[in-house]
């Protein structure tokens, strides 16, 4: 079974978010970047588990510049066999999905699995767009994925619960919490990752569907109003009259 895992570089979850003075781009100054957590913890680790039980290969695919290679190497250390980096700006999901699906069409994959959302974009959009460009079925926010011959058994989140579904390969899956547990790469994995292939390619179609005119930060939150634990009625009054929340 051959699996393609799109992975994205994102600011670390604790990063302070700031933008350049013109508001056009993210200010990367002093920011630590990591592999998008849902790509790494859920999608990639489940792909590695499937490979361990069923055989096959795992290819990582990423969009960005050479400064992304460190994150891609980490994915190879966790268990990817090879990797492709497409030169480009990863901000427009339409561009990313088109480039990734163009690569996937030219190579034979049974499964494309990535995280449900990127923690910097929060758009839940890449996997669905890849599925459309591939013309494949898509299971979003999956918490379980088992493969039996040609049939995949999955659970996916729905409002207030989950449902179990069956679908034949090939397909696209976006992974949610519950799919797998985070793995820390071991020294052997890190050493082996250094010699695994990482090919850099150019996107054929560089057009974008959207642009960000500007980024903005939310207004500063005012100070918290502290209420004495023995004076709960004051809180009720504030929630009723000031916040109009009850």
């Amino acid at each position: 079974m051959n699996i393609l895992v799109p992975v994205r570089k994102v600011p670390d979850t604790t990063a302070k978010i700031a933008f350049t003075p013109d508001g056009k781009s993210f200010d990367a100054n002093g920011v630590q970047f990591v592999m998008n957590p849902t790509d790494e913890w859920y999608a990639l680790v489940r792909a590695v588990e499937l490979k361990e039980s069923l055989g096959g290969t795992i290819t990582l695919i990423n969009i960005g510049g050479a400064d992304n290679d460190q994150i891609i190497r980490k994915g190879l250390a966790i268990g990817g066999d090879d990797a492709v980096r497409i030169e480009g700006d990863d901000r427009d999901a339409h561009f990313c999905a088109k480039a990734i699906s163009a690569y996937a069409k030219a190579n034979a994959f049974d499964l494309i699995i990535t995280g449900k959302e990127a923690i910097d974009d929060n758009g839940f959009q890449l996997a669905a767009m890849i599925a459309e460009f591939m013309d494949w079925p898509f299971i979003s926010q999956a918490t379980r994925l088992d493969v039996e011959g040609d049939v995949c058994h999955l659970s996916r989140e729905i409002e207030g619960g989950h449902e179990d579904v069956e679908v034949s390969k090939p397909l696209v899956v976006s992974a949610s919490k519950g799919m797998a547990e985070q793995r820390i790469p071991n020294m052997r994995g890190i050493m082996m990752a250094r010699s695994k292939p990482l090919n850099v390619i150019q996107a054929e179609d560089s057009s974008v569907s959207s642009e960000v005119a500007k980024y903005a930060l939310p207004p500063e939150k005012g100070d918290v109003k502290l209420i004495d634990a023995d004076n709960i009625d004051e809180l009720i009054t504030l929630l009723k009259n000031e916040a109009k929340a009850i």
């Binding site: 978010i17 959207s210 642009e211 960000v212 500007k214 980024y215 903005a216 930060l217 939310p218």
Partner: peptide
């Protein structure tokens, strides 16, 4: 933690 003003192409 931030907002993006998106322009359609």
């Amino acid at each position: 933690k931030a907002f993006a003003h998106v322009k359609a192409n």
